[in-house]
Each structure stands twice: as C-alpha cells, then as structure tokens.
Amino acid sequence: MDFAGKDKASYVKETFNTIAGRYDFMNSVMTLGLDKRWRRKVVRCVGAAENKHILDVCCGTGQLSLALAERVGPRGRVTGLDFSENMLAKAREALQHRPWPERVHFQRGDALALPFPDNSFDGATVGWGLRNLPDLEQGIREMTRVVKPGAKIVSLDMAKPTLPVFKQVYWFYFERVVPLLGSLFTGKRSAYRYLHDSAVQFPAQRELAQIFARCGLIDTRCHNLAGGAVAIVEGTKAAGAVIRHSGFTR
C-alpha cells in the first residue's frame, strides 16, 4: 500500500476523517444493506446483555456501539473508542437521536494503548478496524488485557472467500467497483482503494483466529458471512490469564 509518505496510523486517521460524513451510507451501499444484520450477530457473539459493560474499539461512527447499547439495558454501558475526531463527531451526533444517550460514552484514544485498567470490560468488539492497525497483534493483546477473564473479543471484518468464481467476482468488485462508488458518492477514490488494499493484506479468517490464540485467547473460531466475503472472528480470555500493559503511552 502507498501511504503517500505517511506512516500507516497517520494515513488511516486522515482517510477516515475525510470520509466520515458519508461512511455509513457507503457501508450500506457496499454491503447491500447487510451490515446491520452482521452487527446484530456481533452483538450476540460478544454476549452483550443487561448490565454488561462492553468496549467497542475502532468504533468509527458508532453504529456497532449503538447496536450494543440496545442490548445492555438502562444499567449497562458501552464505551466506544476511536482516534478519528470526525468519525467520533458523527457517532455523538447519531447518539443524540437515541432515547438513551447515557448508555454510551465515546472517547478518542489509541487502540494500541487502550486507556483502561486491566479486566475492565465484560466483552470487546471491533468492526472493520483490526486491519487498520499498524500492529495487529498489539491491538488484540490490548483488547485481551482490558476484558475480564471469561469475556469474549469479537471482530467483524472483510475476509477472503475461497469458492471458485465467487472469489474472483468478489475481488473484482472490491478492487474496481468499490473505488468507483467511493469516487461517485464521496469524491475520495483513493480512500476506497485503500479499503481494498488493506483487505488484501489482512489475514484470512482462519489465520486471524490463530492470531487470536497466539495473543492469549482460547476457544477461537471464525464464522463466515456472505459466502466468506466477511467473517466474524472471536475468542475468549482464559480464567487466570495475565496480559499486562505493554508500556505504550496512554
């Protein structure tokens, strides 16, 4: 990927700040409206329920955070974290249209150095965010550190389908059609070209499940969606697991 002379973190931040205004619309267009259904499945996988406190890393415009908030009830909480100011602004705007804004707190922060104590959350999610991290394993370890033993970490992201023909159609759509749609609807073709390039370099779903295990999670597994074009990958923090803060600045 060409980051135009910038490091990945700076490039990604600038990219998402630029497309924040049309991000949700483009998600619906690219996924043919299936993104809402996929988020509901993530909510079930992470075990969001009454009184739980769930962390949503790389929360973006907050759509997954809001879906989680519907399940945790009036005494539950959701914390959404992202490093894009413009994406967070859209998330806070969306929250004001919900009847329970007190359930969700959005804050700016670094996914590689989460500003939370160990064992703070009853689960953690990340939607289309892991592939944007400069250090994938560090991001997973940080999520593991801040959830309680027995809690789940669940990722929703693009995957790598293996079915003949469908695989070729998928990559053609993602490489050629998605950047064209991005150019038409946002004027930012390069941003949606980045989405393709980052998906190419992102580990396939089974490999990501193995990385979850390497980062200290157990019972790791993946669930294919849309014929394997998208996947949910999950793992559980083992009882007694010790994952210490790595020393990154909070």
Results as ranks from 00 to 15, higher is better:
F3C: 04
A4M: 03
A4V: 00
K8Q: 01
Y11S: 02
T15Q: 03
N17T: 02
T18W: 00
T18V: 00
I19K: 03
G21E: 13
R22P: 03
D24W: 13
M26A: 08
N27F: 10
N27G: 11
T31P: 11
K36C: 07
R37Q: 08
W38N: 06
G47A: 08
G47Y: 08
G47E: 10
A48R: 14
A48G: 14
E50T: 13
N51S: 15
I54W: 08
L55I: 11
D56I: 12
G60F: 07
G62D: 09
Q63R: 14
Q63D: 15
Q63F: 11
L66D: 07
G73C: 10
G73K: 09
G76F: 10
G80F: 12
E85Y: 00
E85C: 00
E85L: 04
A89Y: 02
A89W: 01
K90L: 13
A94N: 14
R98S: 13
P101S: 12
E102T: 07
H105K: 14
R108D: 01
G109E: 11
A111V: 11
L112C: 01
A113I: 02
A113Q: 02
L114H: 07
P115I: 12
D118C: 09
F121N: 09
G123R: 06
V126S: 09
V126D: 02
G127I: 06
W128D: 01
G129Y: 10
N132M: 07
N132P: 09
L136P: 06
R141K: 15
E142D: 11
R145Q: 13
R145L: 14
V146K: 09
G150M: 10
G150C: 08
G150K: 08
A151G: 04
K152I: 00
I153C: 09
V154M: 04
L156A: 07
L156S: 06
K160V: 06
P161D: 12
T162N: 11
V165Q: 03
F166L: 15
K167L: 02
Q168C: 01
V169Q: 06
Y170E: 04
W171S: 04
F174Q: 11
R176T: 05
P179S: 11
L180T: 08
L181M: 15
G182W: 00
G182L: 01
L184Y: 01
F185V: 13
T186N: 02
G187V: 00
S190L: 09
A191G: 12
Y192L: 13
R193L: 00
Y194P: 03
H196S: 06
S198C: 12
F202M: 08
A204C: 09
A209T: 03
F212P: 05
A213H: 10
R214P: 01
C215T: 02
C215S: 02
C215V: 03
I218R: 14
D219V: 02
T220A: 09
A226W: 07
G227S: 08
A229V: 05
V233C: 07
E234Y: 00
G235V: 03
T236F: 01
T236V: 15
A238F: 01
R244Y: 05
S246L: 12
G247K: 06
G247T: 05
F248C: 12
R250G: 02
R250L: 15
